[in-house]
């Protein structure tokens, strides 16, 4: 059997995933990260996007949507401290589309820097959610 790495995804509201995995893909701040077991220690921030986990001894991948947070990699443990995390299959496409529309509208109307930044962040989240839904669809 291949080597495995323990993956923990937690958000402030719940413990969303915990288990051994062969491979994990995460949305790092500076680009997508693929982590195999015995990775060198790494610490980074993550941006809104989907975490893809390939559990040990299973072909079905787990998709978790995270809204940014911190990622710590140790040789045998990957820990994601997510601001919010949702299992991809619980994502709501309609709500995401609505959020995207609202955010785009807000960006056009808002004038202050702070408001634009907030709208931008919301837009990023909505887009990332839609992307996660698309990935999930694609596989199903």
């Amino acid at each position: 059997m291949a080597a495995t790495i323990h993956v923990d995804v937690v958000s402030a509201e719940e413990h969303i995933y915990s288990g051994e995995a062969e491979f994990v893909v995460l949305p790092g701040e500076v680009g997508e990260l693929g982590i195999y077991p015995r990775h060198t220690p790494l610490f980074t921030q993550i941006k809104p996007g989907s975490v893809r986990i390939k559990p040990a001894g299973s072909d079905a991948e787990e998709l978790v949507f995270v809204q940014g947070g911190f990622l710590e990699v140790q040789p045998d443990v990957v820990t994601v401290l997510a601001d919010t995390a949702i299992r991809a299959k619980d994502l709501d496409e309609k709500a995401a589309l609505e959020a995207k529309r609202a955010a785009e509208e807000a960006m056009q109307n808002k004038t202050s820097k702070e408001e634009i930044a907030r709208a931008e962040a919301e837009l990023m989240t909505a887009l990332a959610q839609l992307e996660a839904i698309r990935k999930l669809r694609h596989r199903a």
């Binding site: 790092g28 980074t44 921030q45 401290l81």
Partner: peptide
Amino acid sequence: QVPEGTWDYIYEPDARELLDGMMHRYVEA
């Protein structure tokens, strides 16, 4: 559960910013 003192992380992108953010988060949590 990790050995002490002999290793460091790879930081992406910047150690200072990341650790500041993490410590802030630690206190909040």
